[in-house]
Amino acid sequence: MDMNEQTLDVVREVGSIGTAHGATAVSALLDRKVKISLPDVRFLDFNEALEEAGNLEEEILCVLSTLSGEMKGMMLFLMRKDLINQIIGPMLGVEVEEYEDLQDIALSALAEVGNIVISAYINALAGLAQMDIQVTPPAISRDMLGAILSVPMTMLGYETDKIMMVTGNFIIEEKKFDSSFMMVPDIASLQTLTEKLVGRYE
């Protein structure tokens, strides 16, 4: 599909409002200053997206929710160990060295944080675009980055070979974490979203 600069700008703008809400939600939960960097919007071929992701075998934790209603797609919250410890430290008073060390309670806490961020983001987006969007309860996985990123690709695969990712990095107490927050809409929903929003911006 045709993705012009204007569309990308709108998606970036909406994304930054969504991530701001997500950051505020985590901030309240952890009682720390949390921000999410200005989102980066990219539209890439599957293999380009995987190349950019880096080491595909890297172990990572991901909280994922599926979107339905007027917006179909997925939200992924990719967390690396440093961010995980920033979250479970204040909440549970524990830290982990390895992903395998995460106990059920820590996984539930991380899934819940993911859920809060994702819901805050989607609520902001739904409000702005006046769209009815449902979010499924979060699912969690810890495994290879490449395998996790292939999940939204399987969702999109019958329609396209390209993936649009709106990503932002977490900043806690001025320190940037290499963990990201990603929205992957399907093609039809992206069109609905931009139709609803571009008109308003013009």
Partner: peptide
């Protein structure tokens, strides 16, 4: 070998595909 991709080699060398999940 990338995602949705195929490659072949003859006699020498090796092929690798990373991080198969549901693929």
């Amino acid at each position: 070998v990338g995602i949705a991709d195929m490659k072949f080699v003859k006699e020498t060398g090796s092929l690798i595909t990373y991080a198969l999940g549901s693929c």
